[in-house]
Design a protein around this nucleic acid. Structure first.
Lengths: 244, 244
DNA sequence: CTGCATCAAATTGTCGACAATAATACTTTA
DNA sequence: TAAAGTATTATTGTCGACAATTTGATGCAG
């Protein structure tokens, strides 16, 4: 499952470095908020600074790093606000993508997607509620809907940019989203709406689906904050500190 | 009115070249679909190929050019499908931005926006229905709503990327959108909804507003196609085919 | 004449070095 | 001692040159 489906396999050195850096950032091996040192990483990946710069430039495109003139690039910070902003944006974009998918998906694509859901159902039956389905399967489902919109703008923004940020947040915040069974039912109904060519309903369901995830996260965060406050009542000290 | 409001003034050479190229592309001085020759433009703007490359990379970020490994960069093609895709994406994003704006805008921001609309009303009274209002004023209005969402994702995507593409399409297709008076009323009602803190209504109105523009364009296109077909009735040819 | 293989020219990817700017360490002074 | 200014260091921005790949042109076979 590649990031950008409309592009052939990467070949250039900058591509490799980009993919490695992307993975390292998403998985947290390069800390969120930390500075990107061009000379250091150029040595580590054994490439020139020019190609590393090109790789960084592409990281900027997925909003994984931010650059400032004459200062350098930093990995984006994972804040709660940023995560909620991301989900709100997803709600808007994927909702519309879902509406478009209901209008533009070919019958064959719909059959494929139903088959995929069947497979998810089996996997779910085997190891009930465990991570695998949610981590890969959920993304696969959303991915297929987005592609089904046949809207290049939506596809670029969602698959090319937000997708990676979302993965980063999921890794950093350790979200294995225990909504598996609920999510599965929701996916199922969304597909039904698409198959019925009911764009309006499809959009509503997708928006609810993502909004439910967001609210789930909000609740979790609120809970964590409460615990944190409680445990810090005795020893009021360390907030998380900025890397570097 | 700068492209990215959250960034200080550009200083580096690559910034200047980027801005010049951006303008040249948006205004059509560099033809849509044409190839970007690195050596040629490097000479024309009197910079190294490295800095020109950096500028191109930023053009990629606003989706004004597309690059292919070992082949080069091309200015994006302005197709009818692309324009409609863009409007559909705007409908989703700005609709949500409007909903968020209704929830998060400060009272002061709302007062400012109302004042701006007043000014537009005067300009409109002076030279009724002429281009100026639509070209600058419309964008200003949408801009303020987007910023009002206080959602960095929405702001980045809309102001940093889609905004420039939209300007490009407007230039290339010569759209001075004669919907001025209608648009003004719609703007007015949207602001009212925001002032009432009615996010749901605000989103609906913004979506209708953009959808109306899109339908207006669709009609225009259909009309043009009809004329074209009539003039080509003597020499019947093939329909255009989907690329890739 | 058409189609394919080979070759030449141009363009892009990559590199190392220099210049300009920012960050850090040090010295000086109140 | 603290603060400010200066000097040093490190990092980023920019440049020109070389290597790898693509494009097109040329020549040859069918």
């Amino acid at each position: 499952m590649s990031a950008n489906p409309t592009q052939q396999q990467p070949i250039t050195a900058a591509d490799k470095v980009f993919l490695q850096l992307q993975q390292a950032i998403v998985e947290g091996q390069i800390a969120a908020g930390s500075k990107i040192s061009e000379p250091e990483l150029a040595k580590r990946y054994d490439v020139s600074r020019a190609t590393l710069r090109d790789a960084i430039s592409r990281l900027e495109k997925c909003h994984l790093v931010e650059r400032q003139a004459n200062v350098g690039a930093r990995v984006v910070n994972c804040t709660v606000e940023g995560l909620l902003d991301l989900y709100i944006t997803r709600e808007a974009l994927e909702g519309m993508a879902c509406r478009q998918a209901a209008e533009k998906m070919s019958d064959e694509e719909i059959v494929d997607m139903k088959a995929m859901l069947e497979q998810h159902a089996k996997a779910k039956a085997l190891q009930d509620g465990i991570a695998y389905y949610q981590e890969e399967g959920d993304l696969d489902f959303h991915y297929k809907v987005i592609l089904g919109s046949h809207n290049q703008q939506l596809i670029n923004i969602l698959c090319g940019q937000l997708y990676h940020l979302l993965r980063m947040y999921r890794c950093q915040f350790g979200m294995n989203s225990p909504r598996a069974s609920k999510a599965f039912d929701e996916h199922s109904r969304i597909i039904d709406a698409i198959a019925d060519r009911d764009g309006e309903l499809a959009e509503i369901l997708m928006r609810r689906h993502i909004a439910a995830s967001r609210k789930n996260i909000e609740n979790k965060i609120a809970l964590m904050d409460a615990e944190l406050e409680q445990s810090e009542q005795a020893q009021p000290q360390l907030m998380q500190q900025q890397a570097n």
